[in-house]
C-alpha cells in the first residue's frame, strides 16, 4: 500500500508588517510536522518570523481557461482608477 505524505503549501511572513507570501511546498504527515518541516526547510537563513501551512488539496484555484470571463471584464473599468477623473491644475494633494 502506498501511504505517502501529502503535499503542503508554505507561506512565510518575512518580517512583521509584511504579508505572508507563498514560499513553496513540502511533504508532511500532519499539520504539526508541516510547520516544523517548513521551519527547517524554508527559514534556514533567517527568512521568516511566522509560517502558515495548508494542505495543498484544500486550495481551490481558478482555472486559466476562465481567465477571460474572470479577469478581462475589469480591464475597461477605468473609472475605478483616480486618473479617470479630471481636476483643475490648481487642486493639489487629491
Amino acid at each position: 500500500m502506498k501511504n505517502n505524505w501529502p503535499l503542503w503549501e508554505v507561506f512565510v511572513r518575512s518580517k512583521n508588517g509584511l504579508e505572508h507570501r507563498h514560499f513553496g511546498s513540502l511533504h508532511a504527515a500532519d499539520a504539526e510536522m508541516a510547520l516544523e518541516n517548513a521551519r527547517d526547510v524554508y527559514t534556514r537563513r533567517n527568512e521568516g518570523v511566522s509560517i502558515w501551512v495548508v494542505e495543498s488539496k484544500h486550495i481551490t484555484a481558478s482555472n486559466p481557461e476562465n481567465s477571460g470571463e474572470l479577469f478581462e471584464p475589469a480591464q475597461d473599468k477605468v473609472y475605478r482608477h483616480p486618473t479617470f477623473y479630471t481636476l483643475p491644475d490648481e487642486v493639489k494633494h487629491m
Partner: peptide
C-alpha cells in the same frame, strides 16, 4: 518511518 507518521496522523485525526 514514513508509514508510522501517516498512521499516527490518521489516529490523531
Amino acid at each position: 518511518v514514513r508509514d508510522a507518521a501517516m498512521a499516527y496522523a490518521k489516529k490523531q485525526e
